[in-house]
């Protein structure tokens, strides 16, 4: 009996000292993400990620073409780099560009490549909306969503290692494996979409990313509300690959409340956005 009491005392002590140790994983989503994170990336893994991302980025540019408008490109880069200063992946150099299409969407390729369509920008009304979309895409890169899904790393078994062989010669099978991995990444962007939990993580990340950079995170909500009404071919891919807007809007509002963000105290930069839009052709 005495021994049993000692055991019970120790168990109680553990639960008091370490409440998280006895909580279910569902109670601690943030913790879940950390524990689910892959082992620490090596410098070679990062290089492989960038090389893989370049291939995806080249395909995105091949599909839509670059929107050649220097003032707008500069503006999008200024907004993007303002957010990148608060990224948790300082090892990446982020690149931002506008795709020449009326389709409404934005894309992220591993390694730091972020694209936003001209059609999406046309639907925006202030800078915080643009920041929200960019921050969401940055969330996919920072969360390593494609990297984890396709197991992109520098080790021999990885599909992405095929690029090294592709460049340096290598076998046909390695080239096919690499090419197939890029195909899968494109399928994710255009057909199947990211995993639902990855989209949720990117939306939640967008709220915090915008807030720490000084942008009103409700900008993304306003943008969603506006484009949810724009049904048709321009949003076909976006609708097919993302969760419903109403669910995302609720999640964003909850995230803003949970983080106690005073959106009124943060910036929308409506005038600066309007000034930048004058440069559009």
């Amino acid at each position: 009996m005495r021994r049993a009491s000692v055991l019970v005392f120790l168990l109680v002590l553990m639960s008091v000292a370490m409440p998280d140790a006895v909580m279910s994983a569902d109670d601690q989503p943030w913790r879940q993400r950390v524990s689910a994170a892959p082992p620490e990336m090596t410098s070679d893994d990062v290089t492989e990620e960038i090389r893989f991302g370049r291939e995806v980025a080249a395909r995105l540019l091949g599909r839509y073409g670059l929107y050649a408008n220097d003032p707008l490109t500069k503006y999008v880069n200024l907004v993007g780099q303002s957010l990148a200063a608060y990224s948790n992946r300082p090892e990446l150099k982020y690149h931002f560009a506008v795709l020449n299409t009326s389709e409404i969407n934005a894309y992220a390729a591993p390694g730091g490549y972020i694209f936003i369509t001209k059609g999406a920008i046309d639907k925006m009304q202030d800078e915080s909306e643009l920041a929200g979309v960019i921050a969401h895409e940055m969330g996919h890169i920072n969360g390593k969503h494609v990297v984890k899904e396709l197991d992109i790393k520098a080790t021999e078994g990885s599909a992405a290692a095929g690029l090294a062989r592709l460049i340096g010669g290598g076998t046909e099978s390695a080239r096919i494996a690499f090419s197939k991995a890029v195909d899968k990444a494109m399928d994710t962007l255009f057909t199947t979409g990211y995993k639902r939990e990855d989209e949720i993580e990117a939306d939640k990340g967008s709220v915090m990313q915008c807030a720490v950079a000084g942008y009103d995170p409700a900008g993304l909500i306003r943008y969603f509300e506006r484009i949810s009404a724009a049904k048709g071919k321009s949003t076909e891919v976006l609708d097919k690959t993302h969760p419903a807007y109403d669910a995302r809007i609720i999640l964003l509002k909850d995230s803003i409340t949970a983080a106690a963000i005073d959106t009124a105290a943060l910036k929308t930069y409506k005038e600066r956005f309007a000034e930048a839009m004058k440069t559009k052709k």
Partner: peptide, 30 residues
């Protein structure tokens, strides 16, 4: 799914100066 490496190179070469970014982040004009 054609590949546009010329476009990619333009994207990668685009840079903005630290001074411009700092001014922008402080709320300055473009």
């Amino acid at each position: 799914d054609r590949l546009d490496y010329d476009g990619l190179e333009r994207v990668e070469k685009y840079t903005i100066s630290d001074a411009e970014l700092t001014k922008f982040m402080e709320g300055g004009k473009i």
